[in-house]
């Protein structure tokens, strides 16, 4: 039996007291334990940022790479060994900013990886500059007159690209968060989980209370397979912010469409003893 302690290691998280990351860390361990997934089956990939430190605090396979590039690494690993559960875990700056291009094209590609984004609407690691999801007009130490560009809407972008699974949760709702993580992990296809999270040190606007006062859970009457209503939910931001599974589109994964991956993972396919005499005939 896998329990939450299975994923503990001896590293002490270097986050501020009260950081939303703690609850996300615990929730993911909880989700993996409830799904009874052993650590050797999990690969966590991260980029750079406070959120991207999260995998350091897990006892499982880990690849910590460059800012914004974690999704690409995750895709490579998943294609080489699709038996792995591959989770790319980073923040809003990493995934929606510098990694934006990879985010867009891998949603299209639909590799069965999980992308968990700690979205605190600020750059925490470099100490408080505006991120792609900072609200318009937000003042920071660099954007002193306020942010001039409207925020990136990851949910709307993902739905526009026909993402296979799009959900949002909040670090202050751990039960909901665990449920969303489990749904994302068990979903077959690219799964985006945008996790609202207060940054207690650098974001004094989008605080725990700010989110708590605004988030509401989508109930059973909501149909996440309806793309038009999903768009409506994606555009809701301000006084009320929906959390839950916002869009599901069960389309074939990238791996399913590759005949060479049908029988076994790529890394197990032998590269010797292949009869290629037929191919050679063409060149004779």
């Amino acid at each position: 039996m896998v329990d939450i302690k299975t994923y503990d290691n001896d590293q002490i998280p270097a986050w501020c007291p009260g950081c939303g990351n703690f609850s996300i860390l615990k929730s993911l361990k909880q989700a993996l334990a409830e799904l009874d997934i052993p650590p050797d089956r999990v690969l966590m990939v991260s980029g750079i940022g406070q959120a991207a430190k999260a995998p350091h605090y897990f006892r499982c396979n880990l690849f910590n790479g460059l800012h914004g590039r974690d999704i690409s690494v995750a895709v490579g690993a998943k294609i080489a060994n699709h038996n792995l559960i591959v989770i790319a875990e980073s923040g809003d700056g990493n995934t929606y900013g510098e990694g934006g291009n990879h985010f867009i094209h891998n949603i299209r590609r639909n590799v069965n990886i999980k992308v968990f984004v700690h979205n605190n609407q600020i750059y925490g690691l470099t100490k408080g500059q505006a991120s792609p999801t900072s609200d318009l007009g937000m003042k920071t130490k660099v954007q002193i007159d306020g942010v001039l560009s409207p925020p990136f809407n990851p949910i709307a972008v993902a739905i526009a690209l026909n993402a296979s699974f799009v959900a949002r949760s909040f670090s202050g709702e751990p039960e909901h968060l665990v449920a969303m993580m489990k749904s994302a992990i068990t979903h077959k296809g690219f799964a985006l989980l945008d996790i609202l999270q207060p940054c207690v040190t650098f974001n004094r606007i989008n605080t725990f209370k700010w989110y708590k006062d605004r988030v509401y859970k989508l109930d059973d009457s909501y149909d996440p397979t309806d793309r038009i209503s999903a768009f409506e939910k994606a555009l809701e931001w301000g006084d009320r912010i929906p959390i839950g599974v916002i869009y599901v589109n069960n389309r074939p994964t990238y791996e399913e469409q590759l005949s060479q991956l049908k029988d076994s993972p790529l890394f197990k396919i032998p590269i010797t003893g292949i009869d290629y005499s037929d191919i050679l005939k063409e060149f004779r």
């Binding site: 500059q129 130490k141 002193i144």
Partner: peptide, 8 residues
């Protein structure tokens, strides 16, 4: 960061 203050 310091330069942005000069700008502001």
């Amino acid at each position: 960061q310091v330069f942005s203050e000069y700008v502001a």
